[in-house]
Simulated assay, not measured.
Amino acid sequence: MSAYEPQLLDDWHVLERDPVSTVRITQGWLERGEQFVMRVPSVVCHADSNLVLNTRHRAMQKVRVVENEPFAMDFRFSDGPCLMRCFSRQVSNRPDE
């Protein structure tokens, strides 16, 4: 299964607001329902990617959390305190797992 990789405009990484372009891209992707996974660059580390799952897609019913581990945010990279608790999850959509 291949992931949808949208063409993003120059404002995709602006942290102070939700860029209109990325909202429109995401809404269109969700509404079309053709791809289960969208790959987007990480705002935190541009060399990494995030995989976004379309919860409306029929493949979502096969997804199972197979491992849940804490994610430690390095606050030296932020401008102020962060009250968010982040988690990294590994998921599988294979029926045998």
Rank of each mutant, 00 (worst) to 15 (best):
G33C: 02
G33F: 00
E34S: 00
Q35S: 00
Q35M: 01
F36P: 01
F36K: 02
V37L: 02
M38S: 03
R39W: 01
R39A: 00
V40L: 00
V40A: 01
P41S: 04
P41D: 00
P41K: 01
S42D: 03
S42E: 03
V43T: 05
V44D: 09
V44A: 12
C45N: 14
C45G: 03
H46P: 08
H46D: 09
A47S: 12
D48N: 12
S49A: 07
S49T: 10
N50V: 09
V52H: 04
L53Q: 01
N54H: 06
N54F: 04
N54A: 04
T55M: 08
R56T: 08
R58F: 08
R58I: 07
R58N: 10
R58L: 07
A59P: 03
M60I: 06
M60L: 08
M60H: 13
M60Q: 11
Q61F: 02
V63A: 10
V63G: 06
R64G: 05
V65G: 06
E67G: 07
E67M: 10
N68M: 12
N68L: 07
E69P: 02
E69Q: 15
P70D: 05
A72G: 02
M73I: 15
D74S: 13
D74C: 11
D74M: 10
F75A: 12
F75N: 10
R76S: 15
S78T: 15
D79K: 13
D79I: 07
G80T: 11
L83R: 10
L83M: 12
L83V: 06
M84A: 09
M84Y: 06
R85A: 11
R85H: 11
C86K: 14
S88D: 08
S88W: 08
R89L: 14
R89I: 13
Q90L: 14
Q90C: 03
V91F: 05
S92M: 04
N93T: 06
N93Y: 15
